[in-house]
């Protein structure tokens, strides 16, 4: 079978996809933190331009951003190979989307927490990392995990610039076998690639759910506590729907 015959070729592509995705996830996280910090700068003269950049990145199609970086950077004297060019453009795009996720997560932590941290004399960074961020995690993680799967999917855009990742290997394989043997195996190869990407994203979502469960642990109602054994109606906080308006 064709797929088994060229499995090492496709496997190389998969490795490159994983590498590219990893670079994009790390870069995206870095840009997200930078943009989130830029958005919350005290001076409006500094935070407004960051906001403008972030909004433009979110509103311009990713395909256009990827091509733009690839075509424009050489004009201003920076030449990147396709791998780093696509990594840069997708990272910046991921950062723009991630900045809003991080900002919303930090905003969801009550102000009292950061005030208490200050009262306890923890310096800015320590307090943020040790107290505020762990509490923001349950809000940040779900959209952040879907951003990570989005970045893995966006790594396929590298094929447009000619990075030898999974999609590009599939294209090459299809071209070669169509020329050599006649009859296009496109549906088979692309179908298999779709399944590979699906499994990859599913695995990320699985790990993400485990992480979410870890950070949600302090908020679980059913965990063992010293209150066990009392009348459950007194222990459990009654759930009142906050928004009863229809």
């Amino acid at each position: 079978m064709l797929l088994l015959e060229f499995r090492s070729f496709l496997f190389d592509g998969l490795l490159n996809t994983l590498l590219l995705s990893l670079v994009m996830i790390l870069g995206g996280t870095l840009f997200a933190i930078l943009f989130a910090a830029g958005l919350s700068l005290p001076s409006r003269w500094l935070s407004r331009p960051v906001f403008l950049i972030v909004e433009c990145l979110r509103d311009i199609p990713l395909m256009v951003t990827v091509l733009l970086v690839y075509f424009i950077l050489p004009h201003i004297g920076i030449s990147l190979n396709p791998f780093w060019s696509s990594a840069l453009s997708v990272s910046v795009w991921g950062g723009a989307n991630g900045a809003h996720i991080i900002r919303a997560g930090l905003a969801a932590v009550p102000r009292g927490q950061s005030e208490t941290v200050q009262a306890f004399g923890l310096s800015g960074w320590k307090g943020l990392l040790l107290v505020v961020v762990p509490q923001a995690m349950p809000v940040i993680l779900p959209p952040y995990i879907s951003l990570v799967t989005g970045l893995v999917q966006a790594s396929s855009l590298g094929a447009v610039l000619g990075v030898n990742e999974l999609l590009r290997s599939a294209q090459v394989l299809i071209e070669q076998t169509t020329i050599a043997r006649g009859g296009s195996p496109a549906y088979l190869v692309y179908g298999a690639i779709l399944v590979v990407y699906f499994v990859l994203c599913w695995a990320i979502a699985f790990v993400g759910r485990r992480l979410e469960a870890h950070f949600a642990k302090p908020y679980r109602r059913d965990r063992p506590s010293i209150d066990r054994g009392k009348d459950p109606s007194q222990v459990l906080v009654p759930t009142v729907p906050l928004d009863v308006r229809t």
Partner: peptide, 15 residues
């Protein structure tokens, strides 16, 4: 769970 670009290629070249 799958990249949109691959979906496009599947429909245009695969179908």
């Amino acid at each position: 769970g799958t990249p949109y670009l691959v979906q496009i290629f599947f429909i245009f070249y695969g179908l």
